[in-house]
């Protein structure tokens, strides 16, 4: 067994939350810069503002976006790891709390969906744990703003649905996301599994760099085709028109049931924020 003190987890969660809120992911920034070269007029100017925004954020330690999100933590825990010290969940929560207090990030979490009282700490985070082989722990933090989260959708297709029907649905979700989700968008798509699994896959898809295609060639082709089609919608940066409606489309799949084909689309904005490290 390899022992890991949960104090280390707390410090690492805090560091990753801070990094994700201040520094745009290199794959995202380079996609925005490529789009900047491609666009003209207002669309180009708006992308220029986004590039300038990311520069100011990193330099002055101001959050990239005022919606510093609900924090989602993905843990891949090696089965030979033994956590010691304070409880793992408490340590992760404390790490988020530390980052949001110190970084002066916005506290956007309410304790109850109906009563809606702000918890004041941006906690609790949502924690997903997966047990994997060996003795390492991979920690990924995902900072998700709700302008784009609100535009996400899930549909349970018939198992005989055609690929065209599925493409049409994903295209419709991108179109309905429109200007409110802060385009250029990043789409995370989950296909297969169950209702919950598809949604989780969609979320995980957003953690993958947008310049890396799915390993299955038929899914990689679908990713490329969808990106091309979405960019023909003309929604453009800030939804004010242009060729760049999406920066990337990432799809993850999982085996599913003979009677169904769940498809979830998690919409993310041009500030798709995540950071990861290995303990």
């Amino acid at each position: 067994m390899r022992r890991i003190d949960t104090k280390r987890v707390r410090a690492e969660i805090s560091r990753l939350c801070t990094t994700a809120n201040l520094k745009l992911r290199p794959d995202i920034l380079s996609a925005i810069k490529n789009a900047y070269r491609l666009e003209k007029g207002r669309a180009k100017n708006l992308l220029g503002v986004l590039i300038e925004n990311s520069r100011i954020a990193a330099k002055e330690r101001l959050a990239i976006c005022q919606d510093t999100g609900m924090v989602e933590i993905f843990l891949e825990v090696g089965q030979e790891v033994n956590f010691v010290g304070v409880g793992l969940k408490e340590s992760i929560t404390a790490g988020v709390r530390d980052a949001y207090a110190k970084g002066r990030f916005r506290k956007s979490i309410v304790s109850d969906p109906i009563i809606r009282k702000n918890t004041g700490t941006n906690t609790p985070p949502i924690i997903y744990t997966e047990i994997v082989p060996r003795d390492k722990v991979k920690v990924s933090t995902f900072i998700k703003g709700f302008g784009s989260e609100n535009k996400s959708q899930l549909k349970m297709f018939r198992p005989t649905a055609t690929i065209d029907e599925i493409r049409e649905f994903i295209l419709k979700v991108a179109e309905e996301a429109g200007p409110e989700a802060c385009p250029p968008l990043v789409l995370g798509v989950g296909m297969g599994g169950t209702f919950a699994k598809a949604a989780l896959l969609a979320k995980k898809a957003l953690l993958r760099p947008i310049d890396k295609r799915n390993k299955s060639s038929h899914i990689a082709r679908l990713e490329k085709r969808l990106l091309k089609d979405i960019n023909k919608l003309g929604i453009g940066p800030a939804g004010l028109g242009g060729k760049t409606t999406a920066l990337g489309v990432n799809i993850e799949t999982f085996p599913t049931h003979i009677a169904g084909l769940p498809v979830a689309v998690n919409i993310s904005c041009h500030a798709t924020r995540s950071a990861a490290s290995i303990l």
């Binding site: 300038e52 100011i56 954020a57 976006c65 919606d67 904005c269």
Partner: peptide, 10 residues
């Protein structure tokens, strides 16, 4: 009016 969504530090 609209301002640029996500250009919050700017």
């Amino acid at each position: 009016f609209v301002a640029v969504g996500g250009a919050a530090a700017f």
